[in-house]
Amino acid sequence: MDYGTFFLIASMEGAVQAAVLALTALGLSLVFGVMRVVNVAHGEFYMLGAVIAYWVSSQISGSPLLGFMAALILSPLLVGVLAAVADRLILKRLNYDPEATIVATIGLLYILQQAALTLHGPVPTAVAAPFDFYVRFPGFGYSGYKLFVIVACIALMLGTWFLLAKTRIGLVMRATQYDRETAQAFGIPVDRVYAGVFALGAALAAIAAVLIVPTQQAYYLMGGDPLLLSFIVVIIGGLGSLRGTVVAAILIGMSDGIISTLFEPTLAKMIATALVALVLVFRPTGLFGTVAR
């Protein structure tokens, strides 16, 4: 097969990965930006999103489309509520201390992983795609659903951007991010904002998982990779920069796909990881970051 086709496939796969990654990382970035909390359990919220999607869609027999729509609403909702509860019960009591919240979210990671193993089981389970058609390219077929995932992720990111930049909720969040004490003095219910941000961050991860799970499968250990990649994306993009997060997700999603067509795949992963680390070394605030406060 010629290099043009290689490149086309690598780009499309990279775009899918980048889109889902951007959405997941956006949640992590939001939580870090507003709350200064490094949420190690972010990947587990992603995993829960996928597992709940499996359960919801398996309860609704008949039309995969109906099950998918139900999962798209219920899964982020449930995960968001769970996150808000975790915020109230644990993070708030720790006063959002950076080190303490890392330990607490590691603890949360174990608890959620074990819950998924006990309740869902250890076997990766497939979720049917809401619709099923292949786009035939010369020499290969490509899933139409994957193309839909890209579009859906872009729409959701635009929605989040609108929420943050154009609405009162976004204004309140930004005010809290900028200066917690002053925001409180101006009557902003900081506690509720924090719970809401944590829930929104988790819900974004869950929704990304619902979108991607028909092309993969729900598995109790699936949270690890999205967590690592989201971390990398958030830091490379520059802390708290929405635009940076999206650009970094595209960079990482695409480079992984394209470098792996040039080298041996494992070697490509090694090179790509080292390169990204070196970008950070020589540009410690990321691509779009300002100096961390």
Binding site: M1, T5, F6, I9, A10, E13, G14, V16, Q17, G139, F140, Y142, Q216, D225, G257, S260, T261, E264, P265, T266, A268, K269
Partner: peptide, 15 residues
């Protein structure tokens, strides 16, 4: 050879 950390496989099939 597929890297052990891989979750997407499609891009390898053109090889």
């Amino acid at each position: 050879a597929i890297p052990p950390t891989e979750t997407n496989f499609f891009k390898y099939f053109p090889r």
